[in-house]
Simulated assay, not measured.
Amino acid sequence: MGKTQANTAAWRNQLVLLEAQLTLADILPPLVRDRPGGRRDEIGTFLNKTLPANASEGST
């Protein structure tokens, strides 16, 4: 796995972790709840801007 693929995998992992945190959003205070959502959006935007449209996780 190359550096770019490893970095992409790490960012995607972060998205999974943030989604898991957001499943608990109902019990979190508003400020704590907003941070994972904002971070998830930032990472998603970053990945969408930097990865080619036809790139997939398993491509080499």
Rank of each mutant, 00 (worst) to 15 (best):
L17T: 12
T23K: 15
A20M: 04
L17I: 10
A10R: 14
I27R: 13
T8Q: 14
T8S: 12
G44K: 14
L18T: 00
L51W: 04
N13M: 07
M1Q: 10
R12P: 08
N7S: 10
A55H: 11
K3W: 09
F46S: 01
V32L: 15
A6Q: 14
L18D: 02
D26H: 06
Q14C: 07
L28Y: 01
I27G: 09
T23R: 15
E19L: 04
L17V: 13
T45A: 13
N7P: 10
Q5A: 13
S56G: 08
L15W: 03
L15G: 03
A9P: 04
R33P: 12
V16W: 02
A10N: 10
G37V: 01
T8M: 11
T23C: 13
I27F: 12
A9T: 05
I27H: 12
Q21K: 04
A25P: 01
P30A: 06
L28V: 08
S56W: 08
W11L: 11
Q21C: 02
R35P: 00
G2E: 07
L22G: 01
L17K: 15
A55E: 11
A25I: 03
K49H: 10
L22S: 01
M1E: 05
A55P: 03
N48W: 10
P36T: 01
T23E: 15
S56M: 08
M1Y: 15
E19I: 01
S59M: 12
G2N: 13
V32S: 15
M1P: 14
A25E: 05
L15A: 02
S59L: 08
R40F: 13
N48P: 09
N7C: 12
L22T: 02
P36H: 07
Q21I: 01
Q14V: 07
A53R: 06
L15T: 01
T8R: 15
A20G: 06
D26E: 10
G37L: 11
Q5P: 01
P29Q: 11
I43A: 04
L22W: 00
A10V: 08
L24H: 05
L47S: 14
L51I: 01
L47G: 14
Q14E: 07
A9S: 04
G37M: 08
L17S: 14
L28N: 06
D26M: 05
G2P: 14
D34I: 08
A9V: 03
F46G: 00
F46K: 09
T60M: 07
P29K: 08
L22K: 02
Q5D: 07
K3S: 07
L15C: 01
G37Y: 04
